[in-house]
Design a protein around this nucleic acid. Sequence first.
DNA 1: CTGTTAGCGCTTTCAC
DNA 2: GTGAAAGCGCTAACAG
Lengths: 346, 346
Amino acid sequence: MAETLTATALTLKDIAREAGVSLATVDRVLHNRPGVRPDTVRRVKEAIARNSFQPHVAAAELARGRARRFAFVMPSGPNPFMQQIEAYLGEMAAWLSARRLHVEMIATDVFDAPVLASSLEALSGGYDGVAVVALDHPIVRAAINDLVDAGTKVVTLVSDVPSSRRHHYVGIDNIAAGRTAGALVGRLVGQRSGKVAIVAGSQGLRDHAERIFGFNQVMTAEFPDLDVLPVLEGRDEDDRSEQLLTRLLGEHADIVGLYNVGAGTQGVAKALSDAGRHDVVFVGHDVTALTRRLLLQGLMDAAISQNPGHEARAAVRVLLALARGEPILSEQEKIRIDIVMRDNLP
Amino acid sequence: MAETLTATALTLKDIAREAGVSLATVDRVLHNRPGVRPDTVRRVKEAIARNSFQPHVAAAELARGRARRFAFVMPSGPNPFMQQIEAYLGEMAAWLSARRLHVEMIATDVFDAPVLASSLEALSGGYDGVAVVALDHPIVRAAINDLVDAGTKVVTLVSDVPSSRRHHYVGIDNIAAGRTAGALVGRLVGQRSGKVAIVAGSQGLRDHAERIFGFNQVMTAEFPDLDVLPVLEGRDEDDRSEQLLTRLLGEHADIVGLYNVGAGTQGVAKALSDAGRHDVVFVGHDVTALTRRLLLQGLMDAAISQNPGHEARAAVRVLLALARGEPILSEQEKIRIDIVMRDNLP
DNA sequence: CTGTTAGCGCTTTCAC
DNA sequence: GTGAAAGCGCTAACAG
């Protein structure tokens, strides 16, 4: 039993002949270019549909000649997660080069809306596509929309700006991520009852706020025996997170669970360790050199992860598909919420 | 700050000029074709390296003209996991077609070594690449090696034959998957002590045997309070799994955990449910319509999953890269062990 | 509004 | 051993 999943290969020329027009006209219709009589458009479209014709991407790519340029706008400053994304883009160098794709990294202060917005404005016209780790702010939204209007394909990366007209979001559903963290803390705490601490960067960041929301949802609904303490805002800094958590641990002897929403993991781990509270169920985000070590040590119990390699590659593939006018394999580009424990460390 | 990750685009002609040879010779060297003087080879290779030249895949693809044919050899009979793989291949139809790639599904009895081997032999010469869900058996190994010797690219899918000369394995590390299941059962059981049951298809299947091995490793080392019962062999059949498990549950009132290694999930769930043992921590494999429902109901606690969509696409991409002689993005093609709980259901 | 034509950068004969 | 030349199936510029 054998079943073929693809159609036989026709060419533009075949379609042209069948529709009784020239190559160029088929090309125009294929790309919704103006200057074709509606009736002709219809005839050509019918011929295309009738044969379920797919233009050969390789030929199209070759003929257009021009290389494509993409920009990745990423936070400046040391952030292991972002560094991983950059590293994975670097690993793709040969792949990109074989496709005549140029990717540039542009570092900016993504937490400062006006700065980010002007960085985006500066890109206008120069790129076929832009991936941006974006703060959700009106001025940023406007900058994104301007890019889109100028014909640039835009994807938001890791952090979304849903109110903008960006073409795609590459990242996880942060509410679901928070829910997952909540379920893990609750389940791993087991029969014990007590208090649960949350350390976040800032509740002003959309992704952090969403995670906390999801976490609380699950805690309230499913683990009524656990008492969630007010959120500590560590600004993703190690020292500050450590100090705040150390104080909290001192005040509450019955803390049994901890959710670290953002970065500052080093500080959180230190506070826990110095207080000798190895029994606390500790769930955080992202697999980095540090969290990997903490998981192996057993100090950290689980990391919720959004595979940075997948995000980097998905962003490139989506920008490429958008630029080519190809459909996006949405299932492929969807970023999953990975639960990483010691034994399934990637 | 902007940094370019790709080299500037040269062409074969540039290299030819620089090496003082013709286009054709550069092409020969590039593909290790015979009939070039060693010294010329060296000169050309140097020119290529010096410019870190990458041939344009689109041009190569176009020039070769011939479409590529891949075969997927999959188990016959109803297996939801395999059906999902097929479905995802179907979703890629447009993508495949735009690249002039032909994928055929070939159903066979992959559990019968001679049958599988002869199915593979029959493919020889007709395909550029073959993906096969393979039983690890000497006769199958020989068939795979024959294909490889005939110039066909071969990847094993889901279940590996490491002793063969297959070019790549697309699937998870099953020992690690078993370890992950063990850690989950152990951690979710919590403070309780008691017995743990294992239901497998057959210990003769390599993947099942490896998962059980990993599971026991973790149980022994980390959860000494849990007592693992002998493996029930349900042959991946619902009825048989149900009967065996029902009897076991009757015999042991103190079963607190259950690991379902393969299929037969329907039967396992029914046994558990009919016995009213909703408290048993139940961990199984793969996200299907059924396991999804069981997770949402709370009867099942976690599913270890190997994203079938990712496996299908990875197999195609790897075969394509092998056929083109491109390097494989190993990080991208690596299949992760996903832990799926209710809140991070994909 | 529509058609003709010259490439894009490779691969592949076929000569030499 | 090596080179010259004819395409592969599209795109884009130009001509009508």
